[in-house]
Amino acid sequence: MNEITGQLLKVVSDWDGGSFKGAYNIREDSGCAGRQSSENIKIEPKNDNPGIVIKISAKAQKETVYIPACITKGGVDDLVYNDFIVEDGADVIIVAGCGVHSDDEEESRHNGIHRFFIGKNAKVLYKEKHIGTGKGSGAKRINPVTDVTMGENSYMEMDTIQISGVTSSDRSTSARLGAGAKLVIRERLMTDGNETAKSVFDVTLDGDDSGVDLVSRSVAKGNSYQEYKSVINGNCRCTGHSECDAILADNGRVNAAPALNASSLDASLIHEAAIGKIAGEQIIKLRTLGLTEEEAERKIIDGFLK
């Protein structure tokens, strides 16, 4: 892999510069820069589309697989289809993430389409960091599409972070939960300059005692614009919670539209949305501890997105 990929991996995959342990697939400029299966996690190329199939056996317990994608130059329009097949009872950590870099005027883009098939009683922690880097004026775009099917009593936690440098992102996440399945989504997002970010979540609770907890925290600075849409469909005895908290700074704009659809008397669904600037009293409190106004603002935002 090239040097820029190495730099991006340090951010999106917490790579320490050594070799990846266990299973991994490193995608670089629409090609493969490295791939390795482990005993319990098999990675194979797809035959019909660009991308891979990741098969996680029930023997995988607390095992980690790395699936980062890096775009290291302008003019790349990457499209990848990755399927994750998680066997009943498996317990896996998936470190995905995408870095897009451009030092020229050409646009670079990553479109990652991930499908998850999670078996009964399986547990998945999915970590995804997005970053855009490079001094080029070319736009850096990341458009992730995630579709999840969760089996009985399975558990998935999605932890997504996009902090800086991505000109535009268009995230679409959909999930369908079986009986007893639990889905936890934590999105953290910061946009600045003229960046835009759109997040759409559509979760359908189909099995009794299924539940989703979706929390999005974002900061919109500069002239940036964010859109948040969530739909929770409760079709049975289930619980759903969605929360969108956004901090505005400068001329930042946020449009939040959480929606709930209940078609069962036993569906218990809640949504919350709060948008506003940093509360003045929070800054004052931290200043009474000795922080300057700028330090206080930074601390509040860092904590909010932590």
């Binding site: 925290r217 501890l289 909010f304």
Partner: peptide, 18 residues
């Protein structure tokens, strides 16, 4: 008291103690 989303009790105490 002022409430903070995102800052933990530990964070506040460590900011206080520097």
């Amino acid at each position: 008291p002022v409430r903070f989303k995102g800052l933990t009790v530990r964070d506040l105490l460590e900011l206080s103690a520097e």
